[in-house]
Design a binder for these strands. Structure first.
Lengths: 330, 330
DNA sequence: TTGTAGGCGTTATCAC
DNA sequence: GTGATAACGCCTACAA
C-alpha cells in the first residue's frame, strides 16, 4: 500500500480510502490510485485490515459432515448470499459430535469471525455458555426455536416425521416401521414425530423401531432393511430417517424380489437429487436446504448490519412428496 | 495476551512462546500460563499472528462446484490431512469458469494463503502468469502434468476414457456413443480418450458423440439418453462422461423399457456412492478423489515445510469397474 | 529460559 | 478531501 501511495504521491490513508470508501476520495485521484494499484499488482492484506478494523469479513459455518449433501446444499445457499457481500466462509466439520463442535468453535473464534452459523440447536452446555458470552451474531440452522434470544432458520423435524407417518397411516399402512442411523439431533426428532403419529393412531409398537448409531449410507440402508425385516417381518411400510438409507432399501428390495410398494412401502427424508429418479421413485419429505442456507445467511447479514430481523425464527417448512414407493393399502 | 502475561507476571513474549513453542518455556511456568489463559478465556488472534509472522496457516482451495460430490470428496481428503496440522482451508468456487478462477484467486490472495490447491490444469493465461510470479506453493489436482515445475496429483483423464472405451470394444460393442455435459477440462479429455480408442479400432463415427455444455445432473442424463437415441438409434453402448448422467440414463431406460445391458449398455465415470447400488449396477471408472485430496494436501505440506517432494507429479490412477450395465455382445 | 524493541499492513481518529 | 499519528495483537531478532 505504501508503494501505491508513493507512486501516486499521496498518503497511505488515501489509498486505503480509495478502496474502502471510494466516495470519500476525489474522482481523479481515485482513478490514479486504482491505476497505480493495478500496475503494481497491489492486493490489500486482509489480516492487517482485520487487525486494524476489528472486522474480519469472515463468518464461521459449523456443519456435522462434509460428505452429506444436505449440509453442502446449505453451505451452497450460504455461499450464494455471503460471497457477493464480500464475506468469506470458514467451514468447520464437527463430525456429528458436540465435543467436536466445542473445540472447533474455539479454533474458529481465533479468526474473529463477524458471525456464526451453526447446525441445529443441540449444542453442548459449554458451547451455549460460550455463545452467550460471545456477543457474536449467531444463527442456528435446520431446526426451529421458540426462544426469543435465539436466531434460527429451519423446519420442524418433528412435524416432518409426524406428517410423513400420518400420511402413511392415511394411506392404509398399519405396521409402519421407523429405521434410523447416525442418530443425530434431527434424526431423533423425526423419530419423535413418527412416534407421536403412531401413538395418536394407536399403532405404536416399539418393535417397529430400528435405531443404529452408525453413519448413514446407501449400503447401510440395504443392511438395515434386512435387519428390519428380520425384526418385524409383518411390517407393511418403512419410514427411513433419510433418503440415503431409503435408496439403499429400494435397491435391496429389488434384489430380494420384494415388491415396492405392494409388499412393502418405503419412505425417506430430505428429497435428495436422486430420489425422484429411482425406480420406483422415492416418497420422501422435501426439505428446503438451499433456502435454509440462503435465509440463515440473510438473517445473519441483517444482524451484522445491526438490524434486528423482523422474525427471530424462520420456519421454511417441508413438503411430503408422495411418489411411487408408497401407495394405498386396502 | 497482555492480560494473561500480567496475571502470571511474565512478558507477553513468554505467553506467546508458551503456546507456539511450549518446549522453550519452563514447565511450571507454562502450566501457570495455560491456567491463566483458560481463566481469562484467552484465545490467540490469528490475524495478529499472521501479520507478525507472515504465515497465515491457511490454504486456499479452488474447486469448480460445491454441489458436485467429486470435488467435495477431494476437499474432504484435503481437510483430513490439513486440519490436524492446524491449517485452515478457504474454499473458493469457480463455477467452472476460468474468469471466475482468476477473480477468486485474486480475492484469496488477500488472505495470504501459505499454499494453493487448484483444480485441473486448464487455468487462464493470466492465472498461470500470476501463479508464476507468486511463489506460493501450489499443487494442481485431478490431472497429470509432465512439466517439472508444476506439482500435480491426479489421474490421466484421457487414459480413463480410453480404457473404458477399449473395454467396451473388447466386450463386443461396436456402436459406442459418448455423451457429455458441462464440458469442463476433464470431460473433454475423457472424450479425447474415447475418440482415440474408437479410432484405433476403426470404429469412430462423429455421429456417435453428443456434447452439451449444460450442467450435469441425473435428470439431464435422462434427457441426453433420449437425444442420443434419436441421434444414433443403432448405438449398442453409451459411455457417459460422469455417473450422474449415466444414472439418469439407467432410470430412463427402465421407464422406456429398454433392456440394459442387452439392448443398450451404459457406462459412467467417477464411481459415485450410488453407482454400485443402482439396478442394474453401473459400470464406471472409479477415480480416487478422496486420495487425490489427501495426497495433494500431503504434497503441499511438504512444500510448505520447504522439502521438495520426491515426485513432482503423482498419478493415482483409476479402475474400470465392470458391473451390470455392461455385458458381452456376441 | 526469559525479556526488550521494533515492526508486520492496515485503519480510526483527529487535524488540516 | 487529505494527511499524520497511533494503535490493532502478535512474533522475529536479539540481548540478558
Amino acid at each position: 500500500m505504501a508503494d501505491v501511495a508513493e507512486r501516486v504521491g499521496v498518503s497511505a490513508m488515501t489509498v486505503s480510502r480509495a478502496f474502502k470508501t471510494p466516495d470519500r476520495v476525489a474522482d481523479s485521484l481515485r482513478e490514479r490510485i486504482q491505476a497505480a494499484a493495478r500496475d503494481l499488482g497491489y492486493l490489500p492484506n486482509r489480516a492487517a485490515s482485520q487487525l486494524a478494523s476489528a472486522r474480519s469479513m469472515t463468518i464461521a459455518v459449523l456443519i456435522p459432515s462434509l460428505t452429506n449433501t444436505v449440509f453442502i446444499d446449505t453451505v451452497a445457499g450460504i455461499h450464494q448470499v455471503m460471497h457477493p457481500e464480500g464475506y468469506q466462509i470458514l467451514i468447520g466439520v464437527t463430525g456429528y459430535s458436540g465435543d467436536g463442535e466445542e473445540r472447533l468453535l474455539e479454533t474458529y473464534l481465533e479468526y474473529n469471525p463477524d458471525g456464526l452459523l451453526l447446525t441445529g440447536l443441540g449444542h453442548s452446555a459449554a458451547t451455549w455458555t460460550r455463545l452467550r458470552g460471545l456477543a457474536i451474531p449467531t444463527v442456528h440452522m435446520m431446526e426451529l426455536s421458540d426462544r426469543p434470544d435465539i436466531y434460527a432458520v429451519g423446519l420442524s423435524q418433528i412435524e416432518g416425521g409426524q406428517a410423513m407417518t400420518r400420511r402413511l397411516i392415511e394411506r392404509g399402512y398399519r405396521r409402519i416401521g421407523f429405521v434410523a442411523a447416525q442418530l443425530d439431533e434431527r434424526t431423533i426428532r423425526r423419530g419423535e414425530g413418527y412416534r407421536r403419529a403412531m401413538q395418536e393412531a394407536g399403532l405404536y409398537d416399539a418393535n417397529l423401531e430400528l435405531l443404529s448409531p452408525e453413519p448413514s449410507s446407501i449400503g447401510f440402508g440395504a443392511e438395515l432393511l434386512d435387519r428390519m425385516l428380520a425384526q418385524a417381518p409383518d411390517c407393511d411400510a418403512l419410514f427411513f430417517c433419510n433418503d440415503d438409507l431409503a435408496q439403499g432399501a429400494i435397491y435391496r428390495c429389488r434384489r430380494l424380489g420384494i415388491a415396492v410398494p405392494d409388499r412393502l412401502a418405503i419412505a425417506g427424508f430430505n428429497d435428495l437429487a436422486a430420489s425422484a429418479w429411482t425406480v420406483p421413485a422415492l416418497t420422501t419429505v422435501a426439505t428446503p436446504r438451499f433456502a435454509i442456507g440462503r435465509e440463515a445467511a440473510s438473517m445473519l447479514l441483517s444482524l451484522l448490519r445491526g438490524k434486528r430481523p423482523e422474525r427471530t425464527c424462520l420456519d421454511l417448512g417441508f413438503t411430503v412428496m408422495e411418489r411411487e414407493t408408497t401407495g394405498t393399502r386396502t
